[in-house]
Computed example of a mutant assay.
Amino acid sequence: MGRDLRVEHPGTVYHVIQRGNNREFIFDKYDDKAFLLDKIRFYKQRVGFTLFGYVIMGNHYHLIIQMHHSPLQKVMQMLNNCYSKYYNSVRKRTGHVFGGRYKAIPVQEDRYMLTLLRYVHQNPIRANICKHPWEYYWSSDNAYRRSINDLVDVDIMLNFLSPNRRKAVEKYVQFMSLEESDDFESLDLIGDESYALAVKPKREVLQRKRLDEILIETGLTLEEFNLVKSGSRKRSLTSCKETYAKEALKNGYTLKEIAGNISLTDVAIHKLLQKERHSVSTDNFAD
Rank of each mutant, 00 (worst) to 15 (best):
D110W: 09
L273T: 06
N284D: 09
A104I: 07
I148K: 03
A104W: 00
V97Y: 02
L114K: 11
A248S: 14
N21P: 01
G252V: 01
N164M: 08
L211P: 09
R235A: 14
E217P: 00
I190S: 08
R145T: 03
D266W: 15
N59L: 05
R101T: 02
T221A: 01
A259L: 01
L220M: 11
R126L: 07
E276G: 09
N21L: 01
T94C: 09
S139L: 06
D266N: 12
H62K: 05
E135L: 03
I40M: 12
P124C: 01
R23Q: 04
S194G: 04
A286V: 13
I129C: 08
Q18F: 00
R46Q: 14
G260I: 07
K85I: 15
A259I: 10
D38I: 03
Y102D: 00
E217G: 06
T12R: 04
L178W: 03
E224Q: 15
Q274S: 13
F160Q: 07
S230W: 07
D283N: 08
D32Y: 12
Q77G: 12
P201C: 00
A245G: 07
S147T: 12
K271D: 14
R93W: 03
A198K: 01
K241N: 09
L206A: 08
L116Q: 03
A268T: 15
E24L: 11
E135T: 00
F98S: 05
L63Q: 01
S236F: 09
D287M: 13
G95M: 08
I65G: 08
V13W: 00
R93K: 14
R210W: 13
T238I: 12
C240W: 00
K92I: 07
K200Q: 12
G219D: 04
E8Q: 13
G219L: 11
S263P: 06
S177T: 04
E193F: 14
F52D: 03
I262V: 08
P106S: 01
T50H: 11
Q274H: 10
T221S: 15
Y172H: 09
D153N: 15
E247K: 15
F175R: 04
G11S: 08
K209T: 04
C130Y: 08
V267F: 13
R93E: 08
